[in-house]
Design a protein around this nucleic acid. Structure first.
Length: 254
DNA sequence: CGGGTTTGACCCGCGC
DNA sequence: GCGCGGGTCAAACCCG
């Protein structure tokens, strides 16, 4: 092997090494992207599930507000009873239907319903003998770690802990002092990067923008809206790129 | 012993 | 009228 061939092979080796390095970095970036996409897929799937449950409950509520006779005429309007529904992360894994919401409840019944293998528990507020509030607690059909709580009526007394789900904003999933509550009636919470604070902030305007669209009625509408909107893909790509850049500050900008 | 839970029985509305 | 299903009652039981 002469000197020229040696230099040629040397350059070739260096090129291969740099190419290998580049592919390694690219592979790492792709793994990172897959990780982000997987987590976002999971979040979106959870939101779709919650939205479906909301639609089911709304159907039930519509039935409760009015009753019709066989001629489709409004016969009576049932006195409006304040009804609210919340999803609560089960506080224990022993299967109990206990929801700590600041009030004292007395259980007066339990039934297995047709559409859900988990029993539904019936509670009355026991903080005041005259308090008309009732609540129904049942595990979510598809996710047993989620409890579906339906409150009926309004308390005629204060709460011991001054914490009432029906008037509170959604709580942090990491706050262990209070149950994890997701109000169905709350505006759709599209924090696409809730698990990564560093990534979330640069995207805040995007999230608010999509929250404010207000034209979508279901999660599926949102997903369809996102996929059809090229600005969403662009914004998403920017956020992902910025997050990669934050993790690898020495990365070349092209 | 008082208060809460469990659970089978009962009630009631609705659809067929 | 009958059956079904959700909601409630109430006696028995449990627990601190």
């Amino acid at each position: 092997m002469d000197a020229q061939q040696y230099i040629f092979h040397n350059e070739k080796t260096e090129n291969l090494e740099s190419e290998s390095e580049r592919l390694g970095r690219e592979n790492e970036n792709l793994r990172f992207l897959i990780g982000i996409m997987s987590s976002q897929l999971k979040i979106l799937q959870e939101k779709i599930q919650k939205k479906k449950e909301e639609q089911i409950i709304n159907t039930v509520l519509n039935k409760n507000n009015f009753s019709y006779d066989t001629n489709e005429r409004i016969r009576t309007e049932v006195p409006t009873v304040k009804i609210s529904q919340v999803f609560v992360r089960a506080s224990s894994e022993d299967g109990s239907l206990i929801v700590k919401d600041g009030f004292q409840w007395r259980k007066y019944g339990q039934k297995v319903t047709k559409d859900n293998p988990s029993p539904r528990a019936y509670y009355r507020c026991s903080m005041s003998p005259l308090c008309p509030v009732k609540k129904k607690v049942q595990k979510s059909r598809d996710d047993e770690s989620i409890l579906v709580v339906i409150y009926e009526g309004e308390h005629n007394h204060g709460s011991q802990r001054a914490y009432e789900i029906s008037s509170s904003s959604p709580c942090s999933m990491t706050d262990s002092s209070i149950p994890n509550v997701h109000r169905l009636n709350a505006s759709l919470d599209l924090d696409l990067f809730a698990t990564n604070q560093e990534i979330q902030n640069p995207n805040q305007n995007l999230v608010e923008d999509y929250n404010n669209k207000g034209k979508c009625k279901t999660i599926e509408d949102y997903v369809e809206s996102f996929t059809k909107d090229p600005t969403f893909s662009l914004a998403l790509a920017k956020v992902v790129a910025s997050s990669i850049n934050a993790q690898q500050p020495n990365m070349n900008h092209t």
